[in-house]
């Protein structure tokens, strides 16, 4: 997605700052679905995601007087939402402490599945069932890897932005990203290899 894809139909910052409720409602209408989906992806719990959704706008309203418009309104809102969601994760005491090296580093490069499934047609790669398998593979990643992969590859943040958002070094982000990508590539390879076998036996 990336913050740019937040639907942003020319909301007037001046009107928002002046306390225009109708303008605020337009902002909420244009951005709430995206923010909810983002929170749901990070937290994987509908109730927690709804809390983040509500808190994001409450925090935004409170911070609005200090917002100078150096970034776009949607980028600003997006950052508040990601921070809220990450805080939700921390509240659940999940391990997001900044570390440069993970203890399981030695196992970072497991053997790799070698099936070339790139030739599968796009509608098969992204069928409803395949999408479900993609979601499941991300869900099964360890928290530390999942959040990095989500922000960088699914949300389109840069390495530096991801590092800032998570309070990690860029090196740590790269290490985690690599491990997440290797893991997902392997999971998808196992799945699509089966699809290829099924196809060839049809």
């Amino acid at each position: 997605m990336s913050e740019e894809s937040l639907n942003n139909p020319n909301i007037s910052l001046a009107a928002l700052k002046a306390g225009d409720r109708a303008e605020f409602a337009r902002l909420v209408d244009a951005t709430s679905n995206h923010i909810y989906r983002l929170a749901l992806k990070i937290l994987r719990d509908p109730q927690d995601a709804e809390d983040v959704l509500q808190e994001t706008y409450i925090k935004a309203l409170r911070a609005l007087p200090e917002f100078e418009g150096r970034s776009s309104l949607s980028t600003w809102l997006y950052r508040i939402a990601v921070n809220e969601a990450l805080m939700g994760l921390r509240k659940r005491r999940l391990n997001l402490v900044p570390v440069d090296e993970d203890p399981e580093e030695e196992d970072a490069h497991p053997g790799m599945v070698l099936t070339d499934w790139c030739c599968l047609p796009e509608d098969e790669l992204l069928s409803a069932e395949s999408r479900q398998r993609l979601d499941q593979a991300v869900d099964e990643l360890p928290e530390t890897l999942r959040v990095v992969f989500m922000l960088r590859d699914m949300e389109g943040l840069s390495i530096r932005e991801t590092a800032e958002m998570l309070g990690l070094t860029e090196t740590a982000v790269k290490t985690r990203l690599l491990r997440a990508r290797l893991n997902l590539r392997n999971q998808l390879s196992l799945y699509y290899a089966e699809r290829l076998t099924e196809k060839s036996s049809e």
């Binding site: 997605m1 894809s5 909420v28 709430s32 679905n33 909810y36 989906r37 709804e50 959704l53 509500q54 706008y57 099936t115 070339d116 499934w117 790139c118 790669l125 992204l126 999408r131 993609l134 991300v138 992969f149 590859d153 699914m154 389109g156 990508r181 290797l182 997902l184 590539r185 998808l188 390879s189």
Partner: peptide, 26 residues
């Protein structure tokens, strides 16, 4: 296959609207 994996995750998901009850509570 790693490049393709990343590409697949970048494809936008079909979007469902915000569920009515969540919108209402918000």
């Amino acid at each position: 296959t790693m490049r393709k994996t990343i590409d697949l995750y970048k494809q936008p998901e079909p979007t469902n609207p915000l569920p009515d009850e969540i919108k209402s509570r918000l």
